[in-house]
Structures are given as C-alpha cells and as structure tokens.
Amino acid sequence: RGDLIKRIISCGYEVIVTGPNRVDVEKIEALGARFVEIPMNKNGVNPKEDLKYQKALYELFKKEKPDVVLGYTSKPVIYGSIAAKKAGVPHKVAMITGLGYAFTAQTKKAKAIRAVMSVLYKKALNCADTVIFQNPDDREQFVSSGLVKSEKCRVVNGSGVNTNRFSVADYPDKITFFMLSRVMHSKGIREYLRACELVKEKHPEVRFMLLGACENIQDSLSKEDLAPYIEKGIIEHFGETDRVEDYYKQCSVYVLPSYREGTPRTVLEAMSMGRAIITTDA
C-alpha cells in the first residue's frame, strides 16, 4: 500500500503508520511516513494481549489527534476502530480485505474463533464511519449477518496495482504455472500441489513454481509437508521477496485456487503483466 501512502502525502497530509514490529520500517519511512511500532500477534487469541494492543492504539490516537484512521486486516480493523471511537477521532474507516481462516475453515477451533470475531466485528464496525469491502460477497455476508449497516459500506475493486512496475512482459519459452501465496489450506495450496502432480505425470516438461512462506499457524502447511513435492521435482519453491514481478515474468499462467479472498492483489498484478489466470470465484 506504498502507493496509497505516497498519494496521501502528496495531497499535503502527514501519515503515521503503525505495525507490530520494525520489519521493513526503512521502506515505510522512505515513503515519507512516520512509523510507530505497536506490538501485536496477528494470529494470537489471547484477549489480554489484544486489549493491550487496543490500549496502545488509543494512547497513540489521543496523543497524535489524527483526522482519519484507516485500519485493514482483522485486528487493526477491530481494535483500531474501537480505539479511534474512544479517542474521538473524527473519521474512522475500516477496510475488510478478506475474511480468512476463521470464516472459511470448518474446524471446531475456526468456528469458535468465527463466533468471537463476529461479535468483535459488530462492535468495531458500529464505531466506524465507513467500511470498505473488496468484493460484494463479503459485504453481503457482513450486512446479512447484522455485523454492519449497509449504508456504511463501500465496495472497491481491490487495492489497485502500479502498472508501471507490473507491466506486460514476454511469455517464457517453457509452459510455467506459478502460485504466489502463503502456504495455507485456505489459499488452496493442497489443490495446487495435487494439480501439479497430475500434470507432471503426463507432461513432465511443464514447470511449476510456488512462492510463499510456511508459517507456524493453524492453517498452514509445514515445511515437512511441502518437502516431498520439492524433492520429487514437482514444484520449485521460493522464499519471500520484494521483487515478485521477476517471478510473474517467468510464468505463463498464474494460479490462485483460494477459498476466500477480497480482490487478491496478486491476481491483479499477474493480469497487469499479461498473464493468464486460473482462480476461484471466491
């Protein structure tokens, strides 16, 4: 969202960015924004830690007196909206970029988290002035579930793409499929790996790429789960990078068989570079 930050600054506003750690802080400051570290475990379920995060946001808002607060991803939306309301921030905007594991998985744990998150979303979005969704299905689910009033909602077609950076490129000589995602069940990683296996059996010359981290969270495949596919030469696995466009250039087809998305930025980036897309209506 660097381009959004740059655009806001170019309009004469000061921008403060909060984050749970100092990863990539130099890049954020290079945009012209001021960074404030507020520790937060994005996948944690400890209410004491979450309330500590909300309190830190409240104290920041009271100190800085921002005109607008924009939160995206679940915890910044929930606790940021509540904290901004309490701190008297004039304009509070929440952006729902997707619903993720809690709203897609059907395990007992996921259902329990979903029930708690629904209560928290309802309270938080009642504090927000505007709620931005990245697809109409998420908006409809939140409205029909009573989590937000329809008059607060806006739908946008994703976060946008810098078409100068992600410009059309020539196709590779070898047919190549590419998936860029965290290595999670909800992103369709199992389906992608199985498809790679099936195609490789009949067409061993086809190349399959995967870029994304195995994380120590409930929905993720482990490195051990992924290892056999790498060792057998079914896929080539790459770690995280700031130069994703270099990988799009190597592929003929971009694949994202996700179970639930907003409007995935990776699909927009691949389309901007002229790649064919295989994805889900999710």
Rank of each mutant, 00 (worst) to 15 (best):
K111C: 08
K174A: 11
V25Q: 12
Y101R: 12
F103Y: 15
A128Q: 11
F178T: 04
K42P: 14
D3Q: 09
L57C: 03
L57W: 08
I235T: 04
Q106N: 15
I82A: 02
V119K: 15
Y192T: 12
R154A: 12
A276E: 01
P257H: 02
E29Y: 08
G262M: 06
K109R: 10
V17P: 09
N216V: 03
V255K: 04
I175C: 11
V161L: 08
E231C: 00
A282Q: 04
D50Y: 13
V116E: 09
D138G: 02
V89D: 08
I113W: 04
K249W: 00
F103G: 06
S159N: 12
M95C: 13
K187M: 10
V17S: 02
D242T: 11
K52C: 04
D137W: 09
V148P: 02
D137S: 14
F142E: 04
A124I: 06
I217N: 13
Y101I: 05
K48S: 04
E224V: 08
D170C: 06
N126F: 12
A110D: 01
D3A: 09
G188Y: 06
E140N: 14
E269Q: 15
D170P: 15
D219H: 12
K232F: 03
D3C: 01
N46H: 11
G100T: 04
I132L: 11
Q218E: 11
Y121C: 01
A56W: 02
E64K: 14
N21I: 05
P136T: 13
G32E: 05
K85Y: 13
P90M: 00
C251S: 15
V255L: 06
S150K: 14
F178E: 04
A227R: 13
Q218C: 00
D129G: 14
V253W: 11
K86V: 06
V156C: 03
K6E: 14
T18C: 07
S252E: 04
C214W: 04
E49H: 13
A270V: 03
L226F: 08
E151N: 14
K42I: 13
V68C: 12
